[in-house]
Nucleic acid binder design. Structure first.
Length: 432
RNA sequence: GGAGGGGUCGCCUAGUGGCCUAUGGCGCACGCUUGGAAAGCGUGUUGGGAGCAAUCCCUCGAGGGUUCGAAUCCCUCUCCCUCCGCCA
């Protein structure tokens, strides 16, 4: 959620930034409701003061004073009426306020569609084969790694049984991510190589809850009941669409010490997405599934270091891809393509040698204080002052890099070589 | 799932309708004291909101209700603890 004071002070700027995100939020209506709300709030507070004073007078009188008691009854009726208006106005006010998107940072490219995302870097040599390379599902089916037909019997479309070497590879990727992010020396060198000045504090591994309550999910700004998030019918619980969705809210209603920041987590969760509205898209292979595996980074920081944490997380993503020797490109997402809570967003696309195209494998999101405001996650400065923390999240590895490895590391006889850095996690095998 | 007990200002705690604009201790901050410290003494120490300000409003797990008045009484929900049942 954005700061209402910011909207009051800079309505035109907020409108402009919302328009850049293709958001159709009515700022003028919001400000009108805001004025009404303040008016009603002052009235209600005044009535409450009179109620309190009247009750105090009755107490002081000692003996029951029917005149004052009747006055109190009148005040109560008056209060209920005004409070009713306040509650309904506040609800409308909050409904709109929650819809106001975060303002894109000035360095985010302005664009109307994802076509205006900016490729800022390409890394690695795309593999050249002396045979016709296969795509990942051709290889996966041939190897018996992917069984979607039986999964469809059991669970429906967009589910798969992943089997054999592919599963070993998935766990190796997860292990590699956890080991890398927990290694302070590695983080230090990434910081130095990227001219960053932030802490080299390691990421703490987490296995977070995969089910999240509405009152914790909703304030993250990531609950999308229509298109993304599965709801349990008998409980007030949603299936995690990303580990980040139960990491970013763990300090909800808490005040962190400035000295303890940054707090960095790397969490693994099976992730679930409804993928409503994506019918027919990415139906082949395991690119867009209802259930997938993902390792996610989450960082709570001071406002001063939030932007650098964002760059740091992209740098970590690049480091991980480089260690795997997977060709990739880095994309500055334009205003239309970053999410509502985002101030900035960066994607990494891996090259798929078998399909001759790029595939989004990583995202890095910087929310400034937008998430923290509704989650009420604050920090106490050393001088005692309070402010909102800044949050960042970013993919470490999802399931999609498996696709890139399969396609880029394939051999003429249909094997897949194992990237060197993953061999220690796979019994030092050469191929799967 | 069943039975019971709890959730109070960073931590512990008092508090069964108005002496609660919440007690005491610990911790923390500042001051006095001291050659310096400790001890002792004193003051302060939950968040949020309205207002130029004085000041006011809200906040005792959450939300409703009763009452002139609720931490306190009633209802619903939630979390923690103990026991029983079931179970990886």
């Amino acid at each position: 959620m954005i700061d209402i004071q910011l909207i009051r002070d800079n309505p035109e700027l907020v409108k402009q930034k919302a328009a850049q995100k293709k958001s159709v939020v009515d700022i003028d209506m919001l400000l009108e409701l805001d004025a009404n709300r303040l008016q009603l709030l002052q009235e209600v507070e005044d009535i409450r003061r009179r109620r309190n004073e009247n009750a105090e007078a009755i107490k002081q009188a000692g003996t029951p004073d029917q005149v004052l008691i009747d006055k109190g009854k009148q005040i109560k009726i008056e209060l209920a009426e005004r409070e009713g208006y306040l509650v309904s106005t506040e609800k409308q006010w909050l409904d709109i306020l929650k819809q106001v998107p975060n303002m894109p940072l000035d360095n985010v490219p302005v664009g109307a569609t994802e076509n205006e995302n900016v490729v800022v870097k390409e890394w690695g040599a795309k593999p050249v084969f002396d045979f016709q390379p296969k795509n990942h599902w051709e290889l996966g089916y041939a190897k018996g790694w992917i069984d979607k037909e039986r999964a469809a019997k059991v669970s429906g479309s967009r589910f798969a049984y992943l089997k054999g070497g592919l599963v070993e590879l998935q766990f190796a990727l997860i292990q590699f991510a956890f080991q890398t992010l927990a290694n302070e020396e590695t983080l230090k060198s990434i910081i130095i190589d990227n001219n960053l000045t932030i802490s080299s504090k390691p990421f703490i591994p987490v296995l977070p809850p995969a089910l999240v309550r509405t009152d914790a999910y909703e304030p993250t700004g990531r609950l999308n009941a229509e298109e993304t998030t599965y709801k349990l019918s008998d409980d007030d619980l949603w299936l995690n669409a990303s580990a980040e969705h139960s990491l970013c809210n763990m300090y909800m209603n808490e005040i962190l010490n400035e000295n303890d920041l940054p707090i960095r987590y790397v969490g693994y969760s099976t992730s679930f997405r409804r993928e409503a509205g994506t019918y027919g898209k990415d139906m082949e292979g395991i690119i867009r599934m209802h259930q997938f595996n993902k390792v996610e980074m989450e960082v709570f920081s001071t406002p001063e270091t939030g932007a650098e944490e964002h760059r740091f997380m992209v740098a970590i993503q690049e480091y991980l891809m480089q260690r795997l020797n997977l060709p990739y490109r880095v994309i500055n997402k334009c205003t239309a393509d970053i999410g509502g809570p985002n101030a900035s967003g960066v994607d990494i696309d891996a090259w798929l040698a078998g399909e001759n195209r790029y595939l989004e494998t990583h995202t890095a999101d910087y929310m400034t204080d937008y998430q923290a405001r509704r989650l009420k996650t604050k920090l106490r400065r050393s001088d005692g002052e309070l402010s909102l923390v800044h949050t960042n999240d970013a993919t470490a590895f999802s399931q999609r890099p498996l696709v890139a490895i399969i396609e880029n590391y394939q051999t003429a006889d249909g094997q897949v070589r194992i990237p060197d850095v993953l061999k220690p996690y796979m019994g030092n095998k050469e191929t799967i």
